[in-house]
Simulated assay, not measured.
Amino acid sequence: MFFRPRTTRIPFRANEQKRKAGQRLQRIELDLTSDRHARAAIEAYADSCAADMPWLAELLRESAAHGTNELSACAATVRRVFGLAQDWAAAQPDYAHGAWEHVRIHLEAALNRQMKQPEDEENDEGEHEA
């Protein structure tokens, strides 16, 4: 890949200096192989552009998940948005707290199971190598 001026690569390389304050970025490159936050950022961008550019959203989601149908890497965003939705619903006359908490419990279980799977795979690989 050739160098593009005023481009910041994330994560930073050890020998790179941090960006100077006030310098405006034109481009940021995310590395899905070494940046654990890159997938979440790409998913968020895909969600944002889906209405205007569905083809781009689909392409981004496929590349971020490497062709798998895994849950989102944006667990923090899912939790935040669910909380906002529950707060809005609580102001409605037909709000059912028990139902929302039931959904929250199952949502947390799904997100936690998704987060635990990579740890299990790492442990399995370590056992096979021994």
Rank of each mutant, 00 (worst) to 15 (best):
R13I: 02
E125P: 00
L56F: 10
D94V: 06
N112V: 03
F3M: 07
Y95P: 01
A91H: 06
G22E: 03
D87K: 10
T77L: 14
T68C: 04
R113H: 07
Q114H: 15
A85T: 07
E70W: 06
P93C: 01
E62V: 06
K18C: 05
V81N: 04
D31N: 14
R24F: 03
E62K: 14
A44P: 00
W100D: 04
P54W: 04
E127Q: 10
L30W: 11
N112E: 15
E58F: 03
W100S: 04
D35N: 13
I105S: 08
W55S: 10
H97F: 01
S72P: 02
W100Y: 12
D47K: 05
A51F: 08
R27G: 01
M115R: 15
E70M: 06
A46M: 03
F12E: 14
T7S: 05
R6H: 13
V78I: 15
Y45M: 13
L60W: 11
H128R: 13
A50T: 04
Q17V: 06
A64M: 08
W55L: 07
S34D: 07
S48K: 10
H102Y: 13
G98F: 01
Q86E: 15
R79L: 15
H97A: 15
V103G: 01
A40I: 03
A73D: 10
L32G: 00
W55M: 06
W100N: 02
G126P: 00
P11L: 02
I42R: 05
C74T: 06
A85G: 02
D120I: 12
A75H: 13
A14T: 12
E16V: 09
H128W: 10
P11D: 00
A46W: 04
L60P: 01
F82E: 09
Y45L: 15
A64R: 07
A40K: 09
A130R: 14
I42F: 03
A76W: 07
E16N: 04
R27H: 14
R27E: 12
H66L: 11
R79S: 09
I10F: 12
L84P: 00
E62A: 11
R36L: 10
T7H: 05
G126H: 10
H128Q: 13
E119H: 11
E108N: 15
R9W: 10
A51N: 08
P93K: 02
D94R: 09
N123W: 08
P118W: 05
L84A: 09
